[in-house]
Every structure is written in structure tokens, then in C-alpha cells.
Amino acid sequence: MKNHLIVVGVDGSDSGRRALEWAAREAAGRDTAVQAVLAWSWDGVEADVLTATSPEEEHRQATAVLERQVQAVIAEHGSHLPIAAETVEGRPADVLIAMARGADLLVLGSHGHSRLRHSVLGSVSEACIRRATCPVVVIPTHLGESVPDREPAVRAAQR
């Protein structure tokens, strides 16, 4: 690796956590740092059980999700891992592509958001594979593991 940086997209999902764990293992034993990135926006498309009431609250919640996932990986793999965490406002694919410019690798989970978000906004991993200037690794969902479906939460929030 030439630039000694692995950028990984984190979104609070199990798939994003697995991507961060894979990136941490890949960086371990090398002179490589991990930059965990969570893109957030105040677009009203995400409708989880805990919804933000303002852009500031959305940013705060995104930062808390990212910190929890980074701390969990550090606790599991050791504090010697250089993992930086950053929340960035914007569309996930655009943010991750920009953050990965000059990086050695961009790591993503294969599934993160609901099917509704995928059908409206498109796949983040597909966009990153097409447009990134560095190699992209997509960590698959475990075989036999179901992909979480948040559509019931979306329908409940729309009522």
C-alpha cells in the first residue's frame, strides 16, 4: 500500500460494522491507518425508530453511531489500531468517493440501508465501485444471514 490509508464506510448496520472490522484486520500489522466515515444528511428519507428533529440532532446521532462502532472494533482488536472517525454531511456515495481520493482502499458493507432507500437513492457500493479512484472492497452479508429490512419502521413512521 502506498498511501497507508484505508477508508471505510460505516452506517450503523451490521454490514458496516463488518466492513470496519475487516478494514481494521487488514490494517493490523501494516503501517496503515483506518479512516471510518459516516455520511449523514437531513433529507427525511431515513425513518428509523429514533428520528432526528433537526440537522444538528441528525449530526449528533450520526457521530454517536460512528463512535460506538469504532469503539467496539478497538475494544475487540486492540487499542493499537490507528482508527480515525469522521462524520461528513452529504450523500454517502459522494462523501465516500471524495474521502477515498488518494487512499489505498475503500471498504464498504454490501447492505446497509433499507430497500426503500436503495430504490430511491441507488446503491452506495455500486456507485463507489463505478466512480472511486482506488480499489473498492465490498464485504458480503454472511451466508444464511438475513438482511435487515427497515421498511416496517418506514411504514410506521409514515402513519
Rank of each mutant, 00 (worst) to 15 (best):
M1G: 14
M1K: 08
K2R: 13
N3W: 09
V7C: 05
V7H: 07
V7F: 07
V8D: 02
V8S: 06
V10S: 06
V10E: 03
V10H: 10
D14F: 09
D14M: 12
S15Q: 14
S15W: 01
S15M: 06
G16D: 04
G16N: 00
R17P: 00
R17V: 11
R18I: 12
A19T: 07
A19G: 09
E21S: 14
R25D: 10
R25T: 02
G29N: 10
D31F: 05
A33P: 00
A33G: 12
Q35N: 06
A36W: 01
A36C: 02
L38K: 05
L38R: 06
L38S: 11
A39Q: 00
A39W: 07
A39S: 12
A39Y: 13
W40I: 10
W40M: 03
D43G: 12
D43C: 04
D43T: 08
E46T: 12
E46M: 13
A47S: 13
A47C: 11
A47L: 14
D48F: 12
D48G: 15
T51M: 15
A52C: 06
A52E: 06
S54M: 05
E56S: 12
E57H: 10
E57G: 03
E58M: 14
H59C: 13
H59W: 12
R60A: 09
Q61K: 14
A62P: 06
T63V: 09
A64D: 09
A64G: 09
A64M: 08
L66E: 02
L66W: 08
R68I: 02
V70W: 07
A72I: 07
V73P: 04
V73R: 08
V73Q: 09
A75R: 12
E76P: 00
H80W: 05
L81H: 08
L81S: 07
I83T: 10
I83H: 11
A85G: 08
V88A: 01
V88K: 01
E89N: 11
R91G: 10
R91F: 13
P92R: 01
D94P: 00
D94G: 10
I97F: 08
I97H: 01
I97N: 10
A100Q: 05
R101G: 14
G102R: 03
L105K: 04
L105D: 03
L106V: 03
L106G: 09
V107W: 01
L108G: 02
G109Q: 00
G109E: 02
S110E: 15
G112R: 04
R115D: 06
L116A: 05
H118W: 12
H118Y: 15
V120T: 09
L121N: 05
L121H: 07
L121I: 05
G122P: 07
S125K: 05
A127P: 00
A127C: 04
A127T: 08
R131V: 04
A132S: 13
A132I: 05
A132T: 01
A132D: 05
C134S: 08
P135H: 06
V136I: 04
V137M: 14
I139K: 03
P140V: 11
P140T: 07
L143E: 15
E145P: 06
E145F: 04
P148R: 04
D149R: 00
D149Q: 10
D149K: 00
D149G: 10
R150L: 11
E151Y: 07
P152N: 05
P152V: 06
A153D: 15
A153M: 14
V154W: 14
R155Y: 11
A156C: 11
Q158C: 13
